[in-house]
């Protein structure tokens, strides 16, 4: 069951790299949140109830509902054009993504630790790379935001890999997630939107030498 969920998660990741509409991003983010919720419920069976509740609150309330909602709101408020700007043509992005997927798999295999589920490792590394790729190959701040959210999801997935024994690590990761996401999404993104009208990254690339 977990395997299917994780594969679904990686599918969303691939879709992230090729999608061309902002709305899709928001939806995908929500889907990822939900998938994470499912995985954590299945995986973290031995965890204390309080912790489990906390994690569920995080994944469901925050990742699945609040974040997509905020993203949608930004899209609405800023009246984004549908298609976003890339720094790199789309087909390159997908080639890169495949290469990174391969790289993640190789890394995961060569880690060669039987205690760890290789799939987890592969997908979470892939998620991390996808997050970075979203940031690197896109010019819009909105895409950067989404990239960061994917990165956060990667961290979360990765912390699930470690499993039941280390609730502290997971909890901290979650705290970080909430904290930063809210900060970036809530405070800054809107402020930038107001300041630069179209949230173009070009407006915010004047500091250079």
């Amino acid at each position: 069951m977990t395997t299917i969920l994780i594969l679904a998660f990686s599918l969303t990741l691939i879709y992230f790299t090729i999608t061309e509409r902002f709305r899709t991003y928001a939806i995908l983010t929500g889907m990822q949140g939900f998938l994470l919720f499912a995985i954590s419920v299945i995986e973290l069976e031995k965890i204390s109830t309080a912790n489990l509740l906390f994690i569920i609150a995080e994944t469901v309330l925050f990742k699945t509902i609040l974040v997509p909602f905020l993203l949608m709101r930004i899209i609405r408020e800023m009246k984004f054009p549908r298609v976003h700007k890339r720094a790199l043509p789309g087909y390159y992005a997908i080639i890169l993504a495949s290469a990174l997927l391969l790289l993640s798999y190789i890394t995961a295999v060569s880690l060669g630790n039987t205690e760890v589920d290789r799939l987890y490792l592969t997908v979470s590394l892939f998620a991390m790379f996808t997050g970075l790729l979203l940031i690197i190959t896109h010019k819009k701040i909105f895409s950067h935001l989404v990239g960061f959210l994917v990165l956060e999801n990667a961290v979360f997935l990765f912390s699930l890999t470690i499993g039941n024994e280390m609730p502290m690590l997971i909890n901290t990761a979650i705290l970080l997630d909430i904290f930063i996401s809210v900060l970036i999404l809530g405070a800054f993104a809107t402020r930038i939107g107001r300041a630069t009208e179209s949230m173009e990254s070009e407006d915010l690339s004047q500091l250079k030498d």
Binding site: A87, I136, K139, S201, S205
Partner: peptide
Amino acid sequence: LAVLQTGKMHHYVLYAL
């Protein structure tokens, strides 16, 4: 050689990768 400080954020992340 001074090509790094471009002002574009996606470049900055690229360096890390």
